[in-house]
Design a protein around this nucleic acid. Structure first.
Lengths: 220, 220
DNA sequence: ATTTTTAGGTACAGTCATGTATCTTATTGC
DNA sequence: GCAATAAGATACATGACTGTACCTAAAAAT
């Protein structure tokens, strides 16, 4: 009953957008393992036939869908607040990770049956030509301004913030709060780039929330 | 045709072991989303009926299977080599993560459709009463000996090594080599506990191998 | 206005997994 | 040896998804 402008049959971009949205939502909900043409068609309120005219299987469709999605917001490093900018960039990452697109991408990457070709396609088509990861953009900015030793910005160091946040999400299944992001920046990222962690506002460590598990670990 | 000692029908522990192994292998191969009673029964070469006598669904079975598995090997911190012990503990983690049990557990944790109750059960039954995570065991040991400031060992810091290794595995889908583990220890873990990173043997950063993606990121 | 394109819808045969029921028989406990 | 237990095997109705065929009618192109 939505206003379709008198039209009763979607076509072209309208239809594609509906299909893409349906595919991403399905993938985010059940992962690639449970993604079916049938479910996508139902969610998009179209006929399965329409899908088969363009794609041969659900994953193929999903990759097109992800490639069409709006890109992730980029961190915009501010004037003179390395710590604050790092926290903000991690917040962007968390927000993205909990969007349907983010969930779908994570599900593909974590799929034990993942096809390397699919992962490659994901990188080439979805992540093509972006500036860098979240904290990476910020760290490079401040290195360029001479406030960080560029030699410190190794691949490992550029990944520290993202890795800890990702693990936290895996462990708890929930979005970390700002206190946790601040702890990551203060206790892991800043020491790694050779800056003294700023004096902690509260001497307490971040609340533990759930449990802490390792990718191959157990409660701390 | 295996030597069954003249017996033709498995029963009790023999049968259970075969079923558990089959369940874990299936879960490791396809993730919880593709885990079915049918596939487990086929792989264990038993009748589906036999499974239904004990379990009501595949996940229930899988949790029992994981609980029965041999525990992960524990890091054994040596005399006086913090750096080496940290690297060794991360190596243990990698080995575990690529075992069928490790893959199955990761697949459960990463499943977008994961049931919190299942995750809780996993922690209670599989990870119950273990000393701690991999680098955690080592770090606590050296803190106890007074070589690390215990106040530094926050939950975030105890997770750094595991988080980076986990992310690396997610990104590349392969087991990191020792150079990478050493880089993690030198560039992230040791700085976070307030120790100067040891002089790097080679001034080069670890080889990049594949790409580096963030949990919500793109190539670096 | 007429033709072309393509979305919407129905139908169908095939495959796979689910639960349940039923029967036979190997193994175990007494 | 005999009875109880439980594994192995087969069958069946049900439901989900697949891939294809086929038809219709709406929207766009001419």
């Amino acid at each position: 009953m939505a206003d379709t402008g008198g039209r009763t049959r979607r076509r072209g971009k309208d239809l594609l957008d509906a299909i893409y949205a349906a595919a991403v939502e399905e993938a985010a909900a059940g992962g690639p393992g449970r993604l079916t043409m049938d479910a996508i068609a139902k969610r998009a309120a179209t006929a399965r036939t329409t899908l088969y005219r363009r794609w041969s299987d659900p994953l193929d469709l999903l990759l097109d869908a992800l490639a069409e999605l709006h890109p992730v917001e980029q961190p915009a490093p501010g004037a003179d607040d390395l710590r604050g900018d790092l926290i903000a960039s991690l917040r962007l990452m968390v927000d993205w990770g909990f969007s349907p697109a983010g969930r779908a991408v994570l599900a593909i990457l974590a799929d034990p049956a993942r096809d390397p070709a699919v992962v490659d396609a994901l990188f080439e088509r979805v992540f093509a030509r972006r500036g860098g990861t979240f904290t990476q953009t910020v760290l490079r900015h401040y290195a360029h301004e001479g406030r960080i030793d560029p030699a410190r910005l190794t691949p490992v160091v550029l990944d520290i913030g993202e890795a800890l946040v990702a693990k936290r999400i895996m462990d708890t299944g929930e979005a970390p709060d700002d206190d946790y992001l601040a702890a990551v920046v203060d206790q892991a990222v800043l020491p790694a780039v050779g800056l003294p962690a700023e004096p902690p506002r509260h001497p307490r460590t971040p609340r533990r929330g759930g449990r802490t598990v390792t990718r191959g670990g157990e409660p701390a």
